[in-house]
Write a protein that binds this DNA or RNA. Structure first.
Lengths: 229, 229
DNA sequence: CTGCTTTCGCTACGAGTCGTAGCGTAACTG
DNA sequence: CAGTTACGCTACGACTCGTAGCGAAAGCAG
């Protein structure tokens, strides 16, 4: 789901909301001129991820991407207004096929989700890109929203689903207070996502099965030797 | 503690280790020509932090920093070989005056440490800079080491001290296995640092006293409504 | 097939940044 | 004083960004 520039309409400012309501469903609504090449879209996004993995964020230039995708630089700018937006779409694809494990126990589900996060973050094309996007997001609320929608929310959905599944299995007490349930899920998610991000992206250390087990221990109960009582 | 370029020695490659052994202690060992202006160092680092807070990482240019610090651009390059190194030193200063709270209870200490992290990360001059540095660090092992030494390790020291203090007070069981004690501390630190980073830097949401309390609940024991047993 | 519309590839451009080189001058030592 | 080093200044080549203008290609309506 790229974020195409308003596809031509010469001067209509196009409402700032990124949710295009009309021209989506099914086939293109009205195509009057030469249609945009879908192949070019894929080539550009693929080239972006490849360049990202090879050169990192700093080495990624629009010119390189254009050459690699066998596309004119102008074509690139016709669809994505900036490097940031392009990289969001290129990286977001990686987060599209997140699946909820549902392995039958809360512990197994958590460990599977952690492993899934870790694998995603370990990819060379996402390493620097994610952090650089987060960095830009701190100054650009629009970009932060897009990051949240395309990358963070899909992950959070997994945690929420896992919690619901565990609750259905009777592993969890009933929601104490409906008002605070959302905040609890937020804290749990921030903890899982943040810890994995820190270890993989900042420390650069791998996430092993053993580490995952220990971390899940911490999440599910008192840390083995942390508290005596 | 800046990381000055080898201060002149025309061709000696200067061992890659950033720990300069000799010329540190006390006053300068041997100064033959015009000494480097310490005021310029401070002015550059101050200007870097100011520009960082105003313009963010992307807007920060060496030219601007030089003008703001009333220093020639060449002077800037004589001391820091790249933007990354300069920003590491500029930001690392913020982490210099970390203090271990030692409030008398493990819970209070954890909450104080979390609040301290949160305050540091909430500063406008560190927001984008830290993430951008982390991003570069994923591709530059040397930079990652410097980040670890200047920014991550000081934080980890706090957590380690807090754990030792709690142990001395009898709040913690004795170390189960000396070999795994280090790993435990690592997991706890990664969890605290990563969660705070994610919430502040990625989600952009503030860390309130209430949130800190809930998070500490999660760390110290089973999450209130997470596990029934 | 003939217009009409929109996209595409290409070239060129101005603005901005990076990092370096060269030069004369300032500061400090012996 | 001479010797050494840092400093400010200017200029430079290489690179990137994002845009403009043009002719050609690819579809659609009649």
């Amino acid at each position: 789901m790229p974020a195409p520039q308003p596809p031509a309409s010469p001067d209509v400012p196009a409402p700032e909301t990124p949710d295009d309501p009309a021209p989506a469903a099914g086939t293109a609504a009205r195509a009057k001129g030469r249609p945009r090449s879908a192949a070019a879209d894929r080539a550009i996004l693929d080239a972006t991820r490849e360049a990202l993995a090879e050169l990192g964020w700093g080495g990624l230039t629009m010119g390189h991407v254009a050459i690699r995708a066998k596309v004119a630089k102008t074509t690139l700018y016709r669809r994505w207004p900036s490097k940031n937006e392009l990289v969001v779409d290129a990286v977001a694809i990686l987060f599209d096929d997140l699946v909820m494990p549902d392995l039958g126990s809360l512990r197994a589900d958590i460990e599977a989700v952690v492993a899934q996060f870790a694998d995603l973050l370990a990819r060379p094309e996402s390493q620097a890109a994610l952090l650089a996007l987060f960095a830009e997001g701190t100054r650009d609320p629009h970009l932060r929203r897009r990051i949240r929608e395309a990358i963070v929310d899909p992950q959070k959905r997994l945690v929420r689903q896992g919690r619901a599944a565990a609750q259905a299995r009777g592993e969890l007490a009933a929601d104490t207070d409906p008002r605070t349930a959302g905040e609890e899920i937020d804290i749990i998610f921030d903890t899982i996502a943040g810890t994995v991000e820190h270890r993989v992206l900042v420390s650069g250390e791998p996430i092993t099965a053993d580490w995952t087990r220990r971390f899940t221990d911490l999440l599910l109960g008192p840390f083995p030797s942390l508290l005596s009582g």
